[in-house]
Write a protein that binds this DNA or RNA. Structure first.
Length: 584
RNA sequence: CGGGGCGUAGCGCAGCCUGGUAGCGCAUCGGUUUUGGGAACCGAGGGUCGGAGGUUCAAAUCCUCUCGCCCCGACCA
């Protein structure tokens, strides 16, 4: 491709709308342009990258035995009523009405559509297992689209669904996808982790998220330095105190009330009373279905509302109570709530409380706290559970090893769905005995655009993008420095032709621009291998080559350039392949 | 949905407080000179100042409403 003929509108300055580096570089290098909030045009260069990623996904899906289909964007509401998600999905679901007044939505995901397809066409256990996927535009009316392609309202996604006749098969399908995902993201040149995750409203029992490690990530993950445990912070398990950490004997002191004027926060109370946050118990009042409940966590811990919601059944919303509810439920203002004397509402406590004696709580009265409060003696806990976020003081729940914390970008998610959709939508088959059985499903998503953004987050420098070879829009960028010199432009043209014959994707910067502009643009758009043709070297019959991620310049005689370039690229590919083999 | 902010040339911004000829840099077009890291000079084009209403002799500027966008939070395969 000739640069002069291609639409690559690079920007010299940082666009005002971009907050993170990948968004900024995607705009500056002319990959995308915004059409509306969370809605983007893909320009030629950006679209080439998208297709590269899609192709890797296709190859690995086919290798794992999945078949590509293409489902409609426009989905009738009936199917969504069947799964009860028409009401449950909320405002994120883009809804449309046609001229006849029939309701539709723009698919944010396709469990309903695929389940409908499969229940119509699959009758027998002989037809199972089956695994179908598609790559298609999805719609979610995000409250706040942000970070460019990272969180859009319209975005490209690979979504796949497996149907099995029994649990073992479903487990096998899940493992196949888990492995395929590892290969996909490794091939895209990403540093990532597969972490245990909350399955959210999609439902199902078990899930892993694939997280690309990046500071700008919207999620936090914890991973063990000693075993292979890794988890989304939302899900990361916190274990209670071990037997040897439990308090011993009758060392309980007498409970006492103290004045704590205006001290509401854990920090203020601790400073005032001269104690540490871990000696305090926070009492948080939540509301579920209009009813209040109390949740106790240690002063240095935070309540994990997702764990709380899952514990309470995981369906209806659990929200933090407002001031009037707190006063109604506890008899005191917020900031002074405590479990002692609480009546008429369930008291849930985090496991860590089991290790505490003589702790501080609110007195359910303004400006008063209680000292030396003890479990069972002073109040009763209705239920102990893991209700908090993990902290850096916690140990690995599997092996007690030290935990590391990272930010991550979720680029893929695999779920075991079980029979959630097959039951609600009656997707059944006949087994060997002629009995009707529900299909066991799994679902598997990859954000294609998000993967592209994540790749840039991880592969850039102050000058621009550094594309990993497998997803680069072109492999080679030919940069003739002086186009008005016929030797230079002629050599550039010759190399361009030769490389194309080799089947290499090559961009020839045939613009009559100053060298500075051409070099800056080349760095910005980040094509992995640059071939520079300039008068100085050319007088000696030489041409220069440089990887975008390196400072080293390789010189080669003009006649051998095509072969040399091919070898360099083949080498790079072989290195990547062997790395892939060693990982998996 | 709550809080904050921004809409002025293709892009980045100034002007607004204190009303009176709409500006700067980059980009674009023509020309001359340049050419190994975003060149120099000369010339040119490009704006219903997001939209509507109001106040005023006069509104980019003040007031009201509205739309769009950005950030923080809540939300979230």
């Amino acid at each position: 491709m000739r640069y002069s003929r291609m639409l690559i509108p690079t920007l010299r300055e940082d666009p005002g709308e971009a907050e993170i580096v990948s968004h900024c570089l995607m705009l500056r290098s002319g990959l995308i342009r915004k059409l509306a909030a969370g809605v983007y045009n893909f320009l030629p260069l950006g679209w080439r990258v998208m297709k590269k990623i899609e192709q890797i996904v296709r190859e690995e899906m086919e290798l794992a035995g999945a078949q590509e289909v293409f489902l409609p964007v426009l989905c009738p509401s009936e199917l969504w009523h069947e799964s009860a998600r028409w009401d449950a999905y909320g405002k994120e679901l883009m809804r449309i009405t046609d001229r006849h007044g029939r309701d539709f939505c723009l698919g944010p995901t396709h469990e309903e559509v695929i389940t409908d397809l499969v229940r119509r066409e699959v009758r027998s256990y002989r037809q199972l297992p089956i695994n179908l996927y598609q790559i298609q535009t999805k719609f979610r009316d995000e409250i706040r689209p942000r970070f460019g392609l990272m969180r859009g309202r319209e975005f490209m996604m690979k979504d796949g669904y497996s149907f099995d006749r029994h649990e073992a098969g479903a487990q096998r399908a899940y493992s196949m996808m888990y492995k395929a995902y590892n290969r996909i993201f490794a091939r895209c040149g990403l540093d990532f982790r597969a972490v245990e995750a909350d399955s959210g409203p999609i439902g199902g029992s078990f899930s892993h998220e694939f997280m690309v490690l990046a500071e700008s990530g919207e999620d936090s993950i914890a991973s063990c330095t000693e075993c292979d445990y890794a988890s989304n912070l939302e899900k990361a398990e916190c274990v209670g105190p071990r037997m040897n950490e439990l308090p011993e004997g009758p060392c309980m002191k007498d409970m006492a009330e103290v004045e704590t004027p205006g001290r509401k926060s854990v920090e203020d109370v601790c400073e005032f009373l001269g104690c540490r946050p871990e000696q305090l118990v926070k009492t948080m009042i939540f509301i579920q279905e209009g009813k209040p409940l109390a949740v106790l966590v240690r002063g240095d811990h935070e309540v994990n509302e997702i764990k709380l919601k899952n514990l309470l059944g995981g369906v209806s919303e659990v929200i933090l109570a407002d001031e009037s509810t707190i006063e109604y439920a506890t008899g005191g203002p917020s900031g002074f709530s405590g479990p002692v004397g609480l009546k008429g509402l369930p008291i849930l406590a985090d496991l860590s409380l089991k290790g505490m004696v003589n702790f501080v709580v609110g007195a359910n009265e303004a400006d008063k706290h209680l000292l030396n409060v003890n479990l069972d003696r002073d109040f009763k806990v209705d239920r102990y559970a893991d209700l908090r976020y993990i902290t850096d003081k916690d140990k690995c729940p599997r092996c007690s090893g030290i935990l590391n914390f990272h930010r991550g970008i979720e680029v893929g998610h695999v779920f075991k769905l079980g029979t959630k959709y097959s039951k609600s939508m009656k997707a059944v088959f006949l087994d060997e005995d002629g009995r009707e059985q529900y299909m066991i499903m799994g679902c598997y998503g990859i954000g294609i655009g998000r993967t592209m953004a994540a790749a840039i987050e991880q592969n850039h420098d102050e000058d621009g993008i550094i594309w990993p070879l497998p997803i680069a829009p072109f492999q080679v960028h030919i940069l003739p420095v002086n186009m008005d010199n016929e030797d230079v432009s002629g050599a550039g043209e010759e190399i361009y032709q030769d490389l194309q014959k080799e089947g290499i994707e090559v961009l020839l910067d045939d613009r009559d621009e100053s060298p500075g502009i051409k070099f800056k643009d080349a760095d910005l758009i980040g094509i992995p291998l640059r071939v520079t043709v300039g008068i100085k070297s050319l007088r000696e019959g030489m041409v220069e080559m440089k990887w975008r991620d390196s400072k080293d310049v390789v010189r080669e005689g003009l006649p051998h350039i095509a072969a040399k370039v091919r070898n360099m690229i083949e080498d790079k590919k072989r290195t990547a392949d062997s790395k892939l083999e060693s990982i998996l």
